[in-house]
Design a protein around this nucleic acid. Structure first.
Lengths: 224, 224
DNA sequence: CAGTATCCCTTATGATACTG
DNA sequence: CAGTATCATAAGGGATACTG
């Protein structure tokens, strides 16, 4: 828990709990559906495990998070109090989309982008078999240049190594461009037209690919 | 501006700006209508002037606040971007009211309570002449024990010294009790019944006094 | 009134390595 | 997988005094 403000105002009492670094993003991850320690880490890659652990304990003590242990497995979920933060986190996302559209180079992260995208695969839209996508960011450092999504009817795996399957569509993109598409700042179509994003593979699959991901909720937000 | 999260997520971008200590409370004060440096200080008494100054500069640079100078007077107001935080601050207040109802002794502050109350005087309801209220918190330290509100048809002054006028109603209260009434945790009636709050003065004025303040928006919030 | 200038200092955080 | 342990650093913030 952060330092007290010494105020009876409910906004102050709320912020004592919520305005510490990483806290809202941790709640965002739980809202997005991550429940396991290491999944949370994947969504918060720059947060140290020590700090993640501490935040989880703080928020558990504060009654926003519940920790459940099933044998060796541990799951964190939001309590009713925590769930009531969802509209606030969403509103913060809308506000950020509207008023902080510019991203610095440091904000771009292939690992995080793929992690985000893999959560939003639309299993209704994807072919009812194994589909393998390769993503390449030619300008990125070698370590994070190539990624694979292996989509099966009820799962999605991310790999940073070639899983060895045949590739259905290869996506070659500028990282900023694909991130902007993902955030709804621009469309797949405009990215393709500009040449900053290229798809390789059978034409029907190339056409279908943008539909394999659920529409980002942020795409529909009117910009000021 | 706080440290970067290195994430393209709009929630992260928003929180880089908003999750620093005091920032949301400063925005709350601006929403509440304070525009002058020293008025902001009154609403944020534990914030050092240096830090307040820095936050104002940060938020001005970020485009949430506009600074206007009129001769020697300086006014801070919210820009459209800042105003769009109002529903979020409000939602945080609702959330805090619902899930963090308990106040520590450190959260109670007569100065802040009076400052808050003076902003919510309902000039429609108050007698159309000068009305003087005295507030006494017998258990409080001498320095903050006695307060006066001097209400005129279009102004309210707070004094921590006897302004010398005749007193219309004297309010003697336990600080926590009056704070709870103010936050909507309990009613004036129950506070009076319990004896933790007493009114002295002509009966019609004593009956009318609770109506002289606008209903706290938090009173209507359903508790979980 | 509307801020600056200092100075101290703790403590929050980052980085890394390690464990059951 | 789910965390702890350790350490060093930066810097964010508190307190107080002062200024145009």
């Amino acid at each position: 828990m952060g330092a007290s403000y010494g105020q009876f105002c409910p906004v102050a009492k709320a912020m004592e709990l919520l305005d510490e670094r990483w806290t809202m993003l941790l709640i965002r991850e739980l809202i997005a559906g991550s429940r396991r320690f290491n999944d949370l880490r994947r969504g918060l890659p720059r947060m140290s495990p020590t700090l993640l652990s501490r935040r989880l304990q703080q928020l558990t003590a504060a009654g926003l998070i519940e920790r459940q242990q099933f044998g060796a497995e541990v799951e964190y979920t939001l309590t009713p109090a925590g769930k009531e933060l969802e509209p606030i986190v969403r509103a913060l996302g809308v506000w950020g989309t509207r008023w902080i559209p510019e991203l610095g180079d440091r904000d771009l992260d292939p690992k995080l982008l793929l992690w985000d995208m893999h959560r939003e695969v639309d299993h209704e839209a994807v072919p009812q078999r194994r589909t393998v996508l390769q993503f390449s960011f030619p300008a990125a450092p070698p370590r994070v240049r190539d990624w694979w999504l292996v989509i099966t009817p009820d799962d999605v795996d991310i790999c940073d190594f070639d899983p060895g399957h045949d590739i259905d569509v290869q996506v070659t993109a500028d990282l900023r461009c694909l991130t902007d598409v993902w955030r709804g700042e621009r469309t797949w179509a405009s990215a393709l037209r500009s040449g900053e994003l290229e798809l390789a593979g059978p034409e029907p699959l190339r056409r279908a690919l943008p539909g394999w991901f659920k529409k980002s909720a942020f795409a529909a937000i009117p910009r000021p």
